[in-house]
């Protein structure tokens, strides 16, 4: 007689697996931290996403003015967004940075996510031409605020990651 495990793991038995959704949509906020990343995020936003929102920390930032929580985050059309509101509605925040660029905005986003207990992932696009020192600078800014930190050689990975996370 076959064991339970032998029966249950056959290809034939796989036909009887329940074919119904096993998760509800997760809201993912993708935030560009620097000008190069903003271009990447704008490209990404052209694709069809069900549960991802794309934001930037740059367009809305008043030039030369001191930092303020309001008027600091924007969608890609330039509409001002409130960071806390956005994080309140997020299951995951993905911060996109480019190696060698200033990623200081991660401090604010990370702190807010920490307070709200929202998972953070930081993804650094680091072409092989970027120096180790430049990459290290960006990483050291991100590290305290990312529960998952990924260094990818090219931006194609971001789309694959978002698909994998059902964005």
């Amino acid at each position: 007689m076959q064991s339970e495990s032998t029966r249950a793991t056959s290809a034939a038995e796989a036909r009887f697996r329940i074919d119904a959704p096993n998760s509800r949509p997760r809201a993912i906020k993708v935030i560009a931290l620097d000008p190069a990343s903003e271009a990447i995020v704008k490209n990404l936003a052209q694709e069809k996403w069900a549960h991802a929102t794309f934001l930037t920390t740059l367009s809305a930032r008043p030039r030369g003015e001191p930092f303020s929580m309001s008027g600091w985050l924007a969608d890609l059309a330039g509409h001002i967004k409130d960071l806390v509101d956005e994080i309140d509605n997020a299951d995951l925040v993905v911060m996109i940075a480019s190696a060698g660029e200033n990623a200081e905005a991660a401090t604010i986003i990370g702190e807010a996510c920490s307070l709200k207990r929202v998972m953070t992932t930081a993804l650094v696009v680091a072409p092989t031409t970027v120096s180790d020192a430049a990459l290290a600078r960006t990483l050291s800014t991100l590290r305290p605020w990312a529960l998952m930190l990924v260094v990818a050689n090219d931006e194609d990975y971001i789309a694959d990651m978002l698909v994998a996370l059902r964005a």
Partner: peptide
């Protein structure tokens, strides 16, 4: 136990699965 070839269209990865 996942079966001979797991159906990856049904999985729910999280960011620690990067």
């Amino acid at each position: 136990s996942m079966g001979p070839i797991v159906d990856r269209t049904k999985e729910n990865l999280v960011s620690t699965d990067n």
